[in-house]
Design a binder for these strands. Structure first.
Length: 311
DNA sequence: CGACTTTGACCGGCGC
DNA sequence: GCGCCGGTCAAAGTCG
């Protein structure tokens, strides 16, 4: 076990205020300002949106407080920027985030060190529900048999949300507590993929963490499911410790916990075109708008979100 | 001693 | 049917 993966290696500023640091262990949306702006994209205050209370946060998503419809809407946004966002190929592995943008070579470089996208859960590779239920016929096959309970039933795959982050640290701190339950070598990648599960009881949220084989400095994190509990960091207060004090004085913070404003993805306010994703960080000057390059509407990329909002 | 990581094995889905 | 591959389990090991 490397120290980098230990749960709380954060004695540094997760916001990457230190320009010398490459990435950080903090939640990625905090840390990417330097990389984003390195591309010469210098956001001016005028070009940024005011923070709207209607914005949903990434944490909202993780907490399950937003529905698919909302999320879908959030992604159906406009664009005006030249920044590129790379969808992370679902099902992973194969390609995660690397091969899908031949025409946008900078999609993986440091042009946008944190990129978010929802993953399509549409692929048919489902596993039976292992978490609960279905342990009826005490089949001999012992433990392994447990895995295959509920045969024939396909577990509806949880919605996924993936993003890429430029970071030296594999396991990015997001305020939740995770237990690693597996690690696998990934085909076509020299870097293994790690599997984490939320340690909170009854919370089935999982996440996968892997490095882009094209750009090892990029970490691809995929969340699956939505937390059904408050962020443990709220209780422990360790995430708060990660935050610079100046952060708390931000007008956007309010009294809620940092997780509540880690990342916010803006619904299409008044801007622009269909092919963009927009997410911003807490601080207005962190905001950045991204445009989907080779893709059509986001719904084409994440059909699951579109499907799910239809009853 | 509890929480967590490591790691090899297993399982199911998918493509050929 | 077979092999590949992603995902998961669980025993053993590690850490604080």
């Amino acid at each position: 076990m490397s120290d980098e993966n230990r749960s709380t290696p954060y004695h540094h500023d997760p916001f990457c205020h230190d320009q010398n640091r490459v990435g950080g262990a903090g939640f990625p949306f905090f840390c990417e300002k330097p990389a984003i702006f390195n591309q010469g994209v210098t956001p001016s205050p005028q070009g940024l949106h005011a923070i709207d209370p209607s914005y949903m946060t990434f944490t909202d998503y993780l907490h399950g407080s937003l529905d698919y419809n909302t999320l879908s809407k959030a992604f159906d946004m406009s664009c005006s920027s030249s920044e590129v966002i790379s969808p992370v190929d679902n099902d992973s592995g194969k390609g995660t985030a690397s091969h899908e943008h031949p025409s946008t070579p900078n999609s993986l470089d440091t042009s946008s060190s944190t990129e978010a996208v929802t993953e399509d859960s549409g692929k048919s590779k489902h596993k039976p529900d292992l978490q609960e239920g279905g342990c009826e016929d005490g089949d001999e096959n012992s433990k392994k048999a447990n895995k295959s309970k509920k045969k024939g039933e396909k577990r509806p795959r949880e919605p996924r949300f993936a993003f890429m982050t430029k970071s030296e640290i594999d396991h990015l701190e997001d305020g939740y507590r995770w237990r690693k339950y597996g690690q696998k070598a990934v085909k076509n990648s020299p870097y293994p993929r790690s599997y984490y599960r939320c340690t909170t009881q009854k919370c089935t949220v999982k996440k996968r963490v892997e490095r882009s084989f094209q750009d090892p400095s990029i970490v691809i994190t995929t969340y699956e499911g939505q937390h059904n509990h408050p962020c443990p960091a709220t209780i422990r207060g360790n995430a708060a410790a990660m935050l610079p004090t100046s952060f708390f004085s931000s007008a956007t913070v309010g009294s809620s916990f940092p997780q509540e404003f880690l990342t916010q993805m803006l619904p299409p306010n008044n801007q622009s075109g269909p092919n963009s994703m927009y997410y911003h960080n807490i601080a207005p000057h962190y905001q950045q708008q991204f445009q989907l390059p080779d893709y059509g509407l986001l719904q084409d990329i994440v059909p699951s979100f579109v499907r799910k909002q239809e009853p």
